[in-house]
Amino acid sequence: MSFNNLDQLYRQVIMDHYKNPRNKGSLEEDAMTVDMNNPTCGDRIQLHLKVEDGKVSDAKFDGEGCSISLSSASMMTEAIKGKTVEEAVDMSNMFSDIMQGKEVNEDKLEDLGDIQALQGVAKFPARIKCATLAWKAMEQGVDEKE
């Protein structure tokens, strides 16, 4: 492992989301809130979701964590907004596949936008849980809603 791999892990776009998180904050009271921790390391995320007519109409997050977990949360909230619940869960499954180093359809990868930048995390097994924390919170949220 070298600094080259580290550059792959900490891509510019990841650092940008970490430094300037999108959708940071909370939603009004009628939105659902999911709290999730990574108990092994102390990362903590609070995800707020608004689901209307089967669509994620709004998403915000708050929390404490490393660059990977917070940038992933920022990217996810951007990506799932306007998507149907099914599409969001599909995306989450695809993200999980990427993290496990599985082959993912190129066209589908494009749909992920900034999230593609997190591909490098797959090479750092200890950090995969950081990247998937927000997605797990989202899945739990829409699951409860259903």
């Binding site: 070298s2 600094f3 580290l6 892990l9 900490y10 390391c41 490393c66 990977i68 750092f124 200890a126």
Partner: peptide, 13 residues
């Protein structure tokens, strides 16, 4: 400005 996980990952490299 650097989270300890990120510190540990860079040191691990």
């Amino acid at each position: 400005d650097v989270h300890p996980h990120d510190v540990a990952t860079v040191l691990d490299a």
